[in-house]
């Protein structure tokens, strides 16, 4: 078991012929992900690497390949359109890697997705992986190890660092979800925690948050009422100055709730231990898991 993706997930890659799209489509195929279709408008009828059929639209790809998940590499100016196209075609899971989508575009996309069965991951995210089964994203597959820790994160390389520390200690992962660094995005921390809660294969949860917004506080509140699984958190940005955008469009402190201090307080108030040093993520997770066993 796992969340969101597994060996049966059938993926269409939107923007498969672009530079990033083709590079990462190959890496996903190498990992064993079943990529059943690609979409590049105007290139319908051709094949990607002589093996993946290319279509002009997601709707056509879905009819021909029965794909149920989409991986988007379309450049920022057309990415919101690509998400809406996938949703209109009835794709259940959309993973949008694209960085730099205008916020007001995402505001409209999120509004359009309300009431549909489509789940969006991202944008501006590394994607989602169920180790050993399916990788829909740009994360290096080999650092992961199948196991029982569910990871949800707002970051990319920081998540790789965390996964690395866990795998080095022999702690595997059920699924890892990068929800993205933009202020308006798809699935949030509470929703992914909920999915991990319902997943019998996940025994413990690692939450990686950062400055900006108040999703960590929402996650803490949600965890308090619903979750029974041991959870630990790490938060980046103690030293970030207010009012400055730290790389991610969403990582900017605009009010008291956006600071790391406020987020640490929220987690600790509900009993979620917060790992204070990024060097201790593996050790902290290990400690939380042994604590529950004994």
């Amino acid at each position: 078991m796992s969340i969101l993706v597994d060996g049966a997930t059938r993926v269409v890659v939107q923007g498969i012929t672009g530079k990033a799209g083709s590079f990462h489509a190959r890496a996903c195929l190498d990992y064993g992900t079943s990529i059943v279709a690609g979409v590049t408008p105007g290139r319908g009828g051709q094949k990607f690497d002589d093996r993946v059929p290319i279509f002009d639209s997601v709707a056509e790809a879905k009819v021909a390949s029965a794909c149920n998940a989409s991986l988007i590499f379309v450049p920022a100016a057309g990415a919101a359109d690509a998400i809406l196209e996938a949703a209109a075609a009835g794709i259940e899971l959309i993973v949008c890697i694209t960085e730099g989508i205008p916020i007001l575009d995402m505001v409209r996309v999120r509004r359009c997705l309300e009431g549909t069965n489509t789940r969006l991951i991202g944008p501006n995210c590394p994607g989602v992986i169920t180790p050993g089964q399916c990788k829909i994203g740009i994360m290096p597959g080999y650092i992961h190890k199948p196991g029982r820790v569910g990871i949800v994160s707002r970051s990319g390389t920081l998540t790789y660092e965390a996964v690395w520390q866990l795998s080095q200690r022999g702690i595997g992962q059920s699924s890892c979800v990068g929800i993205g660094g933009d202020p308006v995005h798809g699935l949030g921390l509470p929703e992914v925690i909920d999915l991990f809660d319902r997943d019998p294969a996940t025994e413990a949860i690692l939450v990686i948050g950062e400055i900006g917004g108040c999703e960590e506080q929402e996650a803490a509140a949600f965890w308090k009422t619903s979750s029974r699984k041991p959870t630990v958190a790490f938060l980046a940005g103690v030293t970030a100055p207010p009012g400055r955008r730290m790389g991610h469009a969403g990582a900017v402190i605009t009010g008291a709730a956006g600071t790391v201090e406020a987020k640490i307080e929220a987690f600790e108030a509900v009993g979620i231990p917060v790992i204070l040093s990024p060097a201790d993520i593996g050790a902290g997770m290990s400690k939380a898991m042994t604590a529950t066993v004994s």
Binding site: S153, R154, S155, G156, T157, L158, T159, E161, G181, I208, E210, I211, F234, A236, G237, V238, T239, A240, R244, M246, G247, H248, A251, L276, S277, P278, A279
Partner: peptide, 23 residues
């Protein structure tokens, strides 16, 4: 490389008594 890791790096320098000149 990466915004989250960059912030975490600044934080750990601070923990050991150093201060980052930049992100």
């Amino acid at each position: 490389n990466g915004a989250g890791l960059a912030m975490a790096t600044m934080d750990i320098l601070h923990r050991y008594g150093g201060e980052p000149a930049n992100f």
